[in-house]
């Protein structure tokens, strides 16, 4: 129960970092932290108390494996989710380099040429 509370605190720290900061680099770090919190939530979903790893090595019997192994499906989903978040962060970093070239600053208050 405590672990879910800690994950939600991490999620809200990420949202605070994304919305309340004015520097683009700090916003990108906030996006990163949101990604970490959601991935951690997925992994913790499949946990069992006193569980063993879900890998069949030659010394483990089938009944003990079925009864005590941790759920491996969320681990496969997290791999995909990490790749997607990595691509988004990489694109945002490249975009902020180009924005620095055009505007000369990383401050979000001065990057407001569009209105209406």
């Amino acid at each position: 129960m405590i672990i879910y509370l800690a994950i939600s605190i991490m999620f809200f720290i990420g949202i605070y970092g994304m919305m309340a900061k004015k520097n683009i680099i700090k916003m990108i770090i906030g996006v990163n932290i949101i990604g970490y919190a959601v991935n951690l939530f997925f992994i913790v979903l499949g946990y069992k108390n006193n569980g063993i790893q879900p890998i069949l090595v030659p010394g483990v019997s089938i009944e003990e494996f079925v009864e005590k192994a941790v759920n491996p499906i969320p681990q496969a989903l997290v791999l995909t989710s990490i790749v997607i978040d990595l691509s988004t962060i990489c694109f945002l970093a490249a975009l902020s380099i180009r924005i620095y070239e055009k505007y000369g600053t990383f401050d979000l208050e001065k990057i407001r040429r569009l209105k209406g």
Binding site: C90, A93, A94, I97, Y100, E101, G104
Partner: peptide, 14 residues
């Protein structure tokens, strides 16, 4: 590719 270009901002010219 992200590290190949160095950008320097000097007094209104980039």
């Amino acid at each position: 590719l992200l590290s190949m270009v160095r950008i320097v901002y000097k007094e209104n010219k980039i």
